[in-house]
């Protein structure tokens, strides 16, 4: 039986680019929206745009949050993208304080817009990955590879050993995490041209 990659559709994200990007590198990926389909998948991809609070609430409402966490607990492969990274953490501070999925310890906070840094928020555009731990999804990437970011919030893990890459925006922030078979990126591999396709291909192969 061939490996099943499932992209979780909870009505909050553009999933077609993710699906087509997997197809481009030779892997079928199904868009799924029912809890039982998560159980059947070997690998799950959780994309996301929009607000932290709405996204987590929608996952719970559609009874997808539990199956996603169980999938991760079983040690199966998981890829979170953007909000799909942020929601893994305990708490998000976008418009108040909101509980996340709690898979990883830590928080999701707004970029510090302190005057001395004079940063524009959202952090929008191409920036580089500084690899802290060589996660298998980054295998074969040239040093300083550029990837596409568009976000106003970033994660702060309690356990710094899960940090896979950092990226510099005024100061370094966590641009991806890796723990066992859980991979999650703040940037958008599906919008990051060749580099992004390589990352998705690597994920399909882990």
């Amino acid at each position: 039986m061939s490996m099943r990659i499932a992209i979780v559709d909870y009505g909050m994200a553009n999933l077609r680019s993710v699906q087509k990007a997997f197809e481009q590198v030779g892997h079928r990926a199904d868009i799924i929206s029912h809890p039982e389909e998560i159980e059947q998948a070997d690998k799950i991809v959780l994309p996301g745009v929009g607000a932290f609070q709405d996204a987590v609430a929608t996952l719970r409402e559609k009874e997808l949050a539990g199956p996603i966490v169980r999938h991760i607990d079983r040690g199966k492969s998981f890829l979170g993208i953007c909000l799909g990274l942020q929601m893994l953490f305990d708490t998000g501070y976008e418009d108040g304080e909101h509980r996340g999925l709690g898979v990883l310890r830590g928080t999701c906070v707004r970029f510090d817009v302190d005057q001395t840094l004079n940063l524009k928020v959202p952090h929008m555009g191409w920036n580089q990955l500084d690899i802290q731990r060589p996660a298998p999804i980054f295998a074969g990437l040239p040093a300083g590879s550029g990837v596409y970011f568009v976000h106003g919030y970033h994660v702060v893990p309690q356990d710094v050993s899960i940090i896979a890459t950092t990226t510099d925006y005024g100061r370094p922030f966590v641009s991806s995490v890796w723990r066992d078979n859980v991979f999650a990126t703040q940037f958008h591999p599906e919008k990051s041209q060749k580099v992004g396709l390589q990352i998705l291909s690597n994920f399909a192969g882990v």
Partner: peptide, 11 residues
């Protein structure tokens, strides 16, 4: 847009 994003992986 649908046609373009099937083949072009950029914003």
């Amino acid at each position: 847009v649908k046609k373009v994003v099937e083949q072009i992986f950029m914003p």
